[in-house]
C-alpha cells in the first residue's frame, strides 16, 4: 500500500466529548464526512498525513517507471508505459486536492516531502534495473496497491473516498499491462525468462512490505480502523495478495523466491515467509538503495520549476488586481 505506518493522531485538545461521540456515530452509520463538517483534530491531522503520503507515493512512484519510458522495447510498450505513468501523476493530483480540503496547502505538502517530514511508500526506493522490472512493478506493486485501495473506496472521508474510486478505475489497467509484460518475457527466450524471474526475485519481498509491518506490531491501527481511515489489517491484505499472486506466478512458469511457500488447506491460504522487517525500517529511515536519488529528483524538479510557478503566479495576481480595479 502507498501509505505505511500511519499513526493515529489522538492528541486531542479539550474537545467536546459529545461532539466526538456524535462524529463517531456518523462514521459507524456509514455517513461520509465532508470538508466543512466538524471533525476531531486528530482525524484531520491523521488524514492529512495519510492522504499526503499516498499522494507523494503516486508522484515519486513515477520515477522508477519513468526511468524506462525512453528505453521501452517497442513503440507500443512506450505509449502504454507513458499512459501508465501519466495516470500516476493524475492519482497524485486527485489525492493532493483531497488533502487540500483538510486545510493544508499543496506547497506545504510538497515542502514536507522535500524536507522529509512526510514520507512515501518504501517500495519506490528500489531501483528498476531491467525492462522486466516494468512488468514486475505493474503486476506486483500496482497489484498490492489495488489490494489496499479497493477497500479505501469506502473510507469515511468523502473527498478521499471519491479520489480512491477514480484511482481504482484506472489501476486495473496498470496491473494488467505489467502482467502482460511478464507473460511475454516468460514465454520468450531463456534470457528473457531469466530476466522476468530476476525481476520477480527482486520485487517479491519489497512488494510484501508494502502492506506494512505485522498487525501484532502496529499499535496505532485501532483508532484508524474506528475512523474508517484504515479498512483492513496489514496481515489480512498481505495474505490476500499472496493467495492471488501465487497462481499467477505459476501460470507464468516463474518461481516465487520463497522456499517455505506452501498451500495450507486448513486456513485456505498459503503459508509464506515474511520480508526482512529490519530492511523495511531501514528503507523507511532513508537508507534504501534509491532514497537519496528519489528525493534529489523531486527537489530538482521543484527547484527547476520555480520560475514557472512564480511567473504564472505573478500573471494570476495581475489579472486578479485588474479585475478588482475594473469592478471598483
Amino acid at each position: 500500500m502507498y501509505a505505511q505506518l500511519i499513526k493515529a493522531d489522538t492528541s486531542q485538545r479539550e474537545e467536546d466529548a459529545a461532539r466526538t461521540q456524535a462524529f463517531q456515530r456518523r462514521i459507524d452509520a456509514g455517513e461520509k464526512i465532508e470538508p466543512k463538517d466538524w471533525m476531531p483534530e486528530g482525524y484531520r491531522r491523521t488524514l492529512i498525513r495519510q492522504i499526503g503520503q499516498h499522494a507523494h507515493s503516486e508522484i515519486v512512484g513515477q520515477l522508477p517507471e519513468g526511468n524506462w519510458i525512453s528505453r521501452a522495447p517497442t513503440l507500443e510498450r512506450k505509449t502504454i508505459l507513458l499512459a501508465k505513468v501519466q495516470d500516476e501523476a493524475g492519482h497524485g493530483l486527485y489525492l493532493y486536492c483531497a488533502a487540500e480540503t483538510l486545510g493544508v496547502s499543496r506547497d506545504e505538502m510538497t515542502e514536507m516531502l522535500l524536507d522529509e517530514r512526510m514520507k512515501y511508500s518504501s517500495i519506490f526506493n528500489y531501483p528498476t534495473l531491467t525492462w522486466a522490472d516494468m512488468g514486475a512493478v505493474g503486476w506486483l506493486v500496482d497489484g498490492a496497491a489495488i489490494m489496499n485501495q479497493v477497500p479505501l473506496q469506502r473510507t469515511s472521508y468523502g473527498p478521499y473516498a471519491r479520489a480512491m474510486i477514480r484511482i481504482c478505475k484506472e489501476e486495473s489497467f496498470h496491473q494488467r499491462q505489467g502482467f502482460d509484460i511478464m507473460n511475454q518475457l516468460a514465454k520468450g527466450t531463456p534470457a528473457q525468462k531469466t530476466m522476468a524471474q530476476n525481476a520477480l526475485d527482486r520485487f517479491w519481498y519489497p512488494a510484501l512490505m508494502m502492506f506494512g509491518p505485522p498487525d501484532s506490531d502496529s499499535v496505532h491501527s485501532e483508532q484508524n480502523m474506528a475512523w474508517k481511515i484504515k479498512m483492513n489489517g496489514n496481515d489480512e491484505l498481505r495474505q490476500k495478495f499472496v493467495d492471488l499472486t501465487v497462481p499467477q506466478a505459476e501460470y507464468l512458469g516463474l518461481t516465487i523466491p520463497d522456499e517455505t511457500l506452501q498451500w495450507n488447506e486448513e486456513k485456505g491460504g498459503y503459508d509464506f515467509a515474511g520480508p526482512d522487517w529490519g530492511e523495511f525500517f531501514d528503507v523507511i529511515k532513508g537508507n534504501g538503495p534509491c532514497n537519496k536519488e528519489r528525493l534529489e529528483a523531486r527537489r530538482k524538479a521543484w527547484e527547476d520549476g520555480a520560475w514557472v510557478r512564480d511567473g504564472l503566479l505573478a500573471h494570476a495576481k495581475k489579472k486578479a488586481r485588474r479585475a478588482a480595479q475594473e469592478a471598483a
Binding site: T101, L102, V104, R309, L313
Partner: peptide
C-alpha cells in the same frame, strides 16, 4: 480587501499558489 476564502474547504486560499 478581505482574504478570499474557499468556502468548500477549510482554509483561506494560499496567496502563494496558483488559484
Amino acid at each position: 480587501a478581505p482574504q478570499p476564502v474557499n468556502q468548500l474547504a477549510n482554509q483561506p486560499t494560499s496567496q502563494n499558489e496558483w488559484p
